[in-house]
Amino acid sequence: MRILIAILVFFLALLPLPLLIHSDFWITWLTLALFYAYLGQAWNLLGGYGGQFSFGHALFFGTGAYCTAVLQIQFGVNAWGGFVLAAVAAGIVGAGTGWLVFRYGLRGSYFALVTLAFAEVFRILANTFSFTGAGVGLLVPLQPGIAQMQFETKAGFFWLLLLLVVGCLLFTWWMQNARFGARLMAVRENEDAARALGVDPFSTKLLAITASGAIAGSAGAVYVQLFLYIDPNIAYGPAMSVEALLVPIIGGLGTIFGPVLGAFALHAIAEIGQLVFGEAPGLNLVLYGLLLVVMVLFLPNGLFGLGRVGFGSGALRRLFKRSAHA
């Protein structure tokens, strides 16, 4: 109940912001923070609650983005329809990847590497085929109006993303209190012990990666309408994958509000980094790398875990320990 109230307070606190803040810079900043929160929420489902650390969530994000862009440009499908189909397509890609990876019992760093590899494969494919615009990318025509999920002002995107983030908060809250969530967390903590209690880890993880992929795909669809452009590096490049995993790790793995907190914190840090270091390309990734090391070493429970006993923190340390020994 307390969490539901917290979600409501969060919603009501952010809702009037576009009316109060007139700076375009800050509205854009908030909109992007919400976008990365949403992407992070997708990752958190699988990584935070399921303990499966994907290093290639761009795979789902990019599939959603391309799906909606191609449908809109080539087939004239409405952006909202594209949004739904993007989620479906990315969910299918998630299920396919999950089926392959979990069937062979890949865990930990091996799972991370395979997701990274899949994203790379899709990046190369998107670079090759003409219907994805190859290396040039796709320009989505500007058709302002709610009907095409494009808004006259940045405030429209802010509200859309706020709704999506709140929807995801509610979904995460529901999941944490449902049989599926209990099973997913059991698999994260100890797969053999979960099996001994009748939990099928394969189908549990498969469902998680499908849901996670679908949400990341819908984030891709929103991205396309926001920036009106997509190319293989944006869609399937490692930058998006890193954002997706860093946001919940900074905020707090396997917590409902972790990704939201992480997205705001990360983007404040990124902004400061840009002020200090200037616009040197790739430098923000160096900063992110440093941040990741610091988080794993000193704050494995994320900002949300400050002053709180660990909840799923072991997973992070285990992953990096295992990689160190592998």
Binding site: A182, R183, M185, A186, R188, E189, N190, D192, A193, A194, A196, L197, G198, V199, G254, G310, F311, G312, S313, G314, A315
Partner: peptide, 16 residues
């Protein structure tokens, strides 16, 4: 013993 270390006792038993 194989507890779900990150969960509390109630949540541990609830899985089964």
């Amino acid at each position: 013993v194989q507890p779900f270390a990150g969960l509390n006792v109630r949540e541990n038993i609830a899985v089964g």
